[in-house]
Simulated assay, not measured.
Amino acid sequence: MPFAVTFPDGYGYVVFVALGLTPLLAWVQGSVVGPLRKAAGVPYPNMYATPQQVKESRDAYKFNCAQRAHGNLLENMPQTMLYMLFAGLEYPKATFAVGTAWLICRAIFAYGYITSEKPDGKGRLYGSGYLLMQGALWGMCGALALKML
Rank of each mutant, 00 (worst) to 15 (best):
M1Q: 01
M1K: 11
P2R: 11
A4Y: 15
T6C: 05
P8R: 01
P8K: 07
P8T: 09
D9I: 01
D9K: 15
Y11I: 12
G12Q: 10
G12H: 00
Y13M: 03
Y13Q: 12
F16W: 07
V17G: 00
L19Y: 03
L19W: 04
G20S: 06
T22Q: 04
T22V: 12
P23Y: 07
L24N: 07
G30T: 15
G30D: 09
S31P: 10
V33C: 10
V33K: 08
A40C: 00
A40D: 01
A40Y: 02
A40W: 04
Y44T: 09
Y44S: 03
Y44H: 05
N46E: 13
M47C: 03
Y48T: 15
E56D: 12
E56N: 12
S57P: 08
S57W: 09
Y61H: 10
Y61G: 09
C65A: 11
L73E: 00
L74I: 05
P78W: 10
Q79M: 09
Q79D: 01
L82C: 02
Y83P: 00
M84I: 10
L85A: 01
F86N: 07
F86I: 15
P92E: 01
P92N: 02
T95Q: 04
T95A: 06
G99K: 10
T100K: 06
A101D: 00
A101N: 01
W102V: 11
C105P: 07
R106I: 14
R106V: 13
R106G: 06
A107R: 11
I108A: 11
F109I: 13
F109L: 00
Y111T: 10
Y111F: 07
Y111M: 03
Y111Q: 05
G112S: 03
S116K: 06
E117D: 15
K118R: 14
K118I: 08
P119Q: 15
G121A: 08
G123I: 11
R124S: 03
R124W: 01
R124L: 02
L125Q: 08
Y126F: 14
Y126M: 12
G127H: 06
G129M: 11
Y130G: 00
L132G: 04
G135I: 15
G135V: 12
L137D: 01
G139E: 02
G139T: 14
M140C: 05
C141G: 02
G142M: 08
A143H: 12
L144A: 11
L146D: 11
L146F: 07
L146C: 09
